[in-house]
Design a binder for these strands. Structure first.
Lengths: 150, 150
DNA sequence: CGGGAATAGTTGAGATCTCAACTAAGTTGG
DNA sequence: CCAACTTAGTTGAGATCTCAACTATTCCCG
């Protein structure tokens, strides 16, 4: 039995992950009618100069598999929020571009999105803890990324 | 926009959540042939006296919706890892019980499960940060739980 | 140059998850 | 005592995600 600090921290973290995912999805679903992962994709494009990116770069930035990205893009293309453009220089490449409707969705939803779940989730943390959280999250991602590189 | 500490912490956290979920699922899938959420359910029953619990209590403890629990139980019943028993005192209640095969799976996988992803994910954290992580995670869950209570 | 390797993305099947609608069983106030 | 309400769980449809197999294009080296 290891009820060490690590085990306790681990349990809390896994629970927090679960609860957070759920809260994010619910809010995104309610505000915009799409899952959080999809909305994040739109926001990412929105913040990109030109509102467009090659699919593979988008996938890498969002840490999505190629397949996952294809399915997501296909779905959101049907919804009219983004469009595919074939690259002129490399015909393998699909450029994923935000449409005007997609931009409108981001502008409409983002202000609430940015504040609501986040504000609640972080509401009980001191400014110090917010700083700690960033460092810890970054370290976790770095550690797991490094392992994947094997 | 606000590139405040909160926004940065939030981004890191969301990324960490994504990466963690993926790592957990991959390991669980590889070691036991089932998703992390399913494996957690088996572990939870394994740690419960009698290796059985009413479905609604299981759902509450794991923070799963009734529907999600039903689907999970149905799937794992087919795999032979757990079984349903109808309660004698309240015929609405389904008792979910770990089978011998389920116990064996937990015993076989759990030692690696407990250490591998966890060890990697936490490897870059100082003992202090591990403590901070637990406090922060707990605070986040509490904050979101309280909101849900509305 | 040419053919194999790498890269980019797609596809379809199967699994899980959510949501809403539903059945069944127990509880309770008038 | 019984109709309305609550609680427990199921069901099926639809959406997303994973995984493996596949096509198309480009790169690279002998």
């Amino acid at each position: 039995m290891d009820e060490q600090p690590e085990a306790r921290a681990w349990r809390s973290l896994v629970t927090a992950v679960l609860v957070l995912e759920e809260a994010l999805d619910r809010q995104s679903q309610r505000d915009g009618g799409l899952p959080h992962a999809y909305f994040s994709l739109l926001v990412f494009l929105y913040e990109t100069p030109g509102h467009r990116l090659p699919a593979s770069e988008l996938a890498a930035r969002l840490r999505h598999s190629p397949s996952r990205l294809t399915h997501a893009v296909t779905s959101m293309e049907k919804s009219g929020w983004l469009a595919r453009e074939r690259s002129a220089t490399d015909r393998r490449v699909q450029i994923v571009a935000l449409t005007e409707a997609g931009s409108r969705l981001v502008r409409r939803v983002s202000p609430r999105q940015a504040t609501e779940v986040r504000a609640v989730a972080l509401s009980r943390l001191s400014p110090q803890q917010v700083g700690q959280l960033e460092e810890i999250s970054t370290a976790i991602v770095a550690a797991l990324d490094e392992r994947d590189a094997d």
